[in-house]
Amino acid sequence: MGTWGIGHFENDSAADFSGSLDDAAPGGRAGLIRAALLRAAEGEDYLESDEGAEAVVAAALVAAQCPGGTPVTTAYGPAEPIPALPVELRPLAVEALDRVLAEESELAELWGEGAESEAWRQGIRTLRAVLVPVPSVAG
């Protein structure tokens, strides 16, 4: 995997997935995002780096639409608008990110060897925190 930074979109697989989203019909983009999250979250085998990178991008796009989410403004992200995504993608995105950080993940393994490992992991944890709703306190 060609990687040029620790950002969610700063690798070949992420940029390719963003391109696939741009090539899809507007009504099909949410389905591609859901499929990427499902591949990561529901897989039982070793999570390959390409699938992990796609799941991170998909989760970042879901998180961008959450309260406190960061808009995707990188040139490597989708150029075409992402429609409003279903709220039920949020827990699926959390599951996918948990799998990306797990022991059976090639991305976690690859980043575990680098000097920027902790910064990459913190970026994933920050993304995850946006996706997990804060429980409201009844008063």
Rank of each mutant, 00 (worst) to 15 (best):
D50F: 11
G31T: 13
P26L: 02
L37S: 05
P67H: 09
C66S: 15
L85E: 03
A14P: 02
A138C: 13
G7H: 07
V87H: 14
G123A: 09
G43E: 02
E44T: 12
G52Y: 08
P91R: 02
M1I: 12
V72M: 09
P71L: 05
L89E: 11
A14Q: 00
A60P: 01
L101A: 07
E113C: 10
L92M: 12
G43A: 08
A115W: 08
Q65H: 12
L92P: 07
T3M: 08
Q122K: 13
I82M: 14
G112E: 05
L32R: 09
L38W: 07
E10Y: 11
P78N: 14
E10I: 06
G27F: 10
D45A: 12
S105M: 04
A93F: 00
E54K: 13
R34I: 01
L32S: 03
L110D: 10
V100K: 01
G2C: 06
V56E: 10
A15D: 09
I124N: 00
G31S: 11
A30T: 14
A58E: 01
L38N: 02
A115R: 10
A35N: 13
A25G: 10
G112P: 02
V132W: 13
L47G: 07
E42K: 14
L127T: 05
S105C: 06
A53Y: 12
D16T: 11
A55I: 00
T74A: 14
A79N: 11
R29E: 06
V94D: 02
L131A: 05
A63Q: 01
S117M: 05
Y76D: 14
E44M: 09
G68A: 10
Y76R: 13
R128Q: 11
T74L: 06
